[in-house]
Design a protein around this nucleic acid. Structure first.
Lengths: 358, 358
DNA sequence: CATTGATATGAATCCTACG
DNA sequence: ACGTAGGATTCATATCAAT
């Protein structure tokens, strides 16, 4: 089976068997929403006597931890296999399952980047008064290995968060009508439909346009709806007809939206301005005297862009480290140059270079 | 060793050996703050060249996962032994360790009630644009077994939360000066001092006045400061002199505060006044007509304190269930009695009985 | 005295291209 | 793969000095 056969189409199949048919290292992002394993054999009543519609679907009936562990292990193992080298995976769960899941994932040598809390301001209340209202779920954001050069769109997320860096706690409303899918009898199609805002955050934070996104569990297609809208590709594994029908209808209404967020226009990396460039362009001259910020003379820049003090010739980092009594130093703002009767930091020369050479 | 020898005093000892000396089933509440097993073996400098100080203490050094797992397992096992039958335990951690901790606790057959997120609005930022800012920690609230009749002060927590149900996400500031303890050189005494607000929530939610509170790890005594102030007893295990000194000084300044929260005055349970008592004392009469809240007559109370409708004789719960088309019902407020030309709920008769027969 | 600006700091698996 | 050198970066809050 090849990627071109499965991309951007809906294919009805059983999850695990066909996951196994996908080629190695073929997807960039996985969003996995395994069943939650809630052990609710009892009927939970509201205090007014009406029945609370709990998760009671057939897929949530696992009689043993072992069975659940094995279920997740098999799928997560396949996920790891089909992930590209630098892909990342998000797994969502609650206290009933997420701790077991991360234990399984650690055994598979996934590497965790963050555990993210989905804080639900409008979560269902606790009717029994016996515990705290369970108002959050947990997402694990992991890479295939410690060495992965994963995608993280820092600036885009910062932009979406009012220009402050995005935190590990996300305040997002749970899915309600009209976003919530209902069937012809006005019954919700799926008991754990995830809100679009959550998937939007996941996809925006950790994927690029044209990346291939996969959801290995068989839900309502929120993942693919957002993947399509944000201009990502998707592989769609779906098992049950009723879900396929709802999702197809939903997807047909969605068009790709091009904008600065979806197209990652904010992710321009700042240019690096190395010492030799500053010297070549005469922002810094060989034999310029370097001082620290209190006008103490340290040394001069030589023709190899190293710094000479009275006894050593060292890289700019090693030299600042030496004078700070450290073994290494990355303090970019340590050195000053005497120019126009002022002390100017090398960093400000870099900014000047960038400003004047746009 | 007996409880009377260790209660409300500071005892210098090595943690695990002396935990083993405590008798079985002697504490009501445990707050455990194990080392987080941070694997930070590099140096991070701020942009001004200063060093970012994170946890580098010896107590967080473990050779590998199994050593850490064993460390936690030994202590949590002892915790379970010394917990009273209905005691509960809170364990705090972050993604580096909390998933391993819960795996260990599941193997010890602890029963989880909630995982609580401590959302830190003023957490340290992420300096390097590589991940989301890690702005939370996780607490696991567990009982010794599924059958525990643990303490949960629902109404008190609701009161503290603006009369809304307390959630599983707590927004609490990290501990800063002046709350943060400093030594004579103005250096923080401990790298991981927990804020008092967090401990206050834990103790208030899950313990009663005079309960015995234990913290099996050797920190700055925030747990005991709050335990003392809220009128709980404590057992204090401490290892290092510098921590003992700081904590003793801190504790000497604290006095028990009596108020409606600490004394749980809001936790008045709905009165348990059985039907027969209401009838014996003439708050309710045999043959009184029972209605629902819309004046529809349901039936009458008979001499055996059951309810007769036109066809059945059932307990008060089964009867309300029948009329609500349910298999069972615990809605205490369903039935009304026609008295003085008003409909009065049976519950309000119970309150009246309690009020007039104190 | 009020306001402003510089400085300090907190349980964080926190860089990357090149040779 | 690994070592090395060079370059880029943070948020909320509190304190304290300066204006």
């Amino acid at each position: 089976m090849e990627i071109k056969d499965v991309i951007n189409t809906i294919i009805k199949w059983d999850c695990i068997e066909n996951l196994r048919k996908l080629p190695d290292e073929c997807v960039d992002l996985i969003f996995a929403d395994p069943p939650y394993f809630m052990q609710t054999d009892w009927v939970l009543l509201r205090t007014d006597g009406s029945k609370f519609n709990w998760v009671e679907d057939e897929w949530d009936k696992f009689s043993w931890y072992n069975e659940y562990d094995n279920f997740c292990y098999q799928r997560l193992k396949e996920c790891k296999r089909i992930m590209k080298k630098d892909a990342s995976i998000w797994v969502i769960g609650s206290f009933q399952n997420i701790y077991r899941i991360w234990f399984i994932m650690q055994n598979l040598w996934f590497w965790i980047l963050n555990d993210v809390i989905w804080d639900k301001p409008n979560a269902a209340p606790n009717f029994s008064w016996t515990r705290l209202q369970n108002s959050h779920e947990t997402l694990l954001w992991c890479t295939k290995s410690e060495k992965s050069k994963y995608t993280f769109n820092y600036k885009t997320m910062k932009h979406l968060n009012g220009w402050r860096q995005e935190k590990s706690v996300w305040n997002i409303w749970i899915c309600i009508w009209p976003e919530r899918l209902k069937d012809e009898n006005w019954v919700k199609v799926h008991s754990t439909q995830k809100p679009e805002a959550l998937l939007f955050n996941v996809i925006t934070a950790s994927s690029k346009p044209w990346d291939i996104v996969l959801d290995p569990f068989f839900w309502t297609g929120t993942t693919w709806a957002i993947a399509k809208r944000t201009g990502r590709n998707y592989i769609w594994l779906e098992r049950e007809d009723k879900y396929i029908k709802a999702a197809e209808e939903r997807l047909s209404k969605i068009e790709v939206e091009h904008n600065e967020v979806n197209d990652l226009e904010l992710e321009v990396k700042p240019p690096k301005v190395p010492m030799d460039l500053l010297i070549k362009t005469w922002y810094l001259s060989i034999w310029d005297k370097l001082c620290d910020r209190s006008w103490t003379e340290i040394g001069t820049v030589n023709e190899k862009w190293y710094v000479d003090d009275w006894e050593d010739t060292l890289s700019i980092h090693k030299m600042s480290a030496k004078h700070l009594w450290l073994t290494n130093n990355n303090w970019r703002d340590y050195f000053r140059v005497f120019k126009n009767w002022n002390l100017i930091s090398i960093d400000s020369l870099r900014y000047k270079y960038i400003e004047e050479n746009k």
